[in-house]
Amino acid sequence: MLLEILTQANGVSGNEKEVRDIIYREVEKYADEIKIDKIGNLIVHKKGTKKSNKKVLFAAHMDEVGLIVTDIDEQGFIKFTTVGGIDKRILVSKTVNIGNKRVPGVIGAKPIHLQKNDERDNTIPLSDLYIDIGVDNRNEAEQLIEIGDYIAFNTKYEEFGDGYIKAKALDDRVGCSILIDLIKDDHIEYDFYAAFTVMEEVGLVGAGPAAYSVKPDISVILEGTVCYEMPELDSHLIPTQLGQGPAISLIDRHSLYDYELREKAIATAKRYNIPYQYRKTSSGGNDAGEIQVSRSGSKTLALSLATRYIHSTASMINKDDYYNTILLIKHLMPILCEGEENDNRF
């Protein structure tokens, strides 16, 4: 699966080149226009055989959360900080790849035997964590890495269980993968734009400029989104569930999604018997936040794949969700593109 190549590539926010290169190669043959803008977004125009009344933009972000080297100490241990929202508690005892040369390293911890009681009870602060790459001093370390190198988690893509995928960076390579599939699909008759954006995880940086240049009427954001389904939870506290189909966003910190677009998506799902769910939490946010208020504004819809253990070293999605999301978009495309004449005039 293409998703394997995409998730094995490293693209911590601000360093998306490797991912962008892969996407570029994948879509080159299918795109009518393709450009990389000044801050690194990849923007694709796929012309259709049918005219679209509405300019529709699909967006997925290329970047992933990770770490970055801030300093190398005398003994060659590497200090780092987080890029994007990572729960610092998950970092201890993980393996990572540093820089574009993928120098392997481990995030160690003081052995439990030597920890005092209060140390055991508290999280290890980020300032006490470091990466060991096996060198003995700063000089040796500097042969291999430099300050500012991005650090990605070292997690293998694997399919397991009953139709599940485990990998790092599923947020949002899964969106990228769906978008590539759409660009490659010759059965889609309508004109559309695709933006693969940079630096979503560090504050929706790429999306605004991308929307500024595309000037869409309607935008559809494809995301990997938070999923948490512990058995003891009340149903309203479960944001999304694996295997329940694409999650349609209602609200998040940055957006209130357009009511009509949402209704169209739901009607389409019902009509073609595609499972769907609502994204029930109002926390989090995605590129829609910047896209909807770019220039004179545009309407937004967000379709997400439920992703367990998001923003950690290994996340997890359901394959049926993936295919159902593509199916829903294909059926939705004509409805979005044809739009309604003057539906916004008083």
């Binding site: 000044k38 801050i39 970055i68 890029v83 400029p209 500024y212």
Partner: peptide, 21 residues
């Protein structure tokens, strides 16, 4: 090293219009 927004005018400049290096 500042992986996220720098809290300077640089943040504002970078996302102006179609993006500015």
């Amino acid at each position: 090293v500042e992986p996220g927004p720098t809290g300077t005018d640089g943040c504002a400049i970078q996302i102006t219009k179609e993006g500015i290096p």
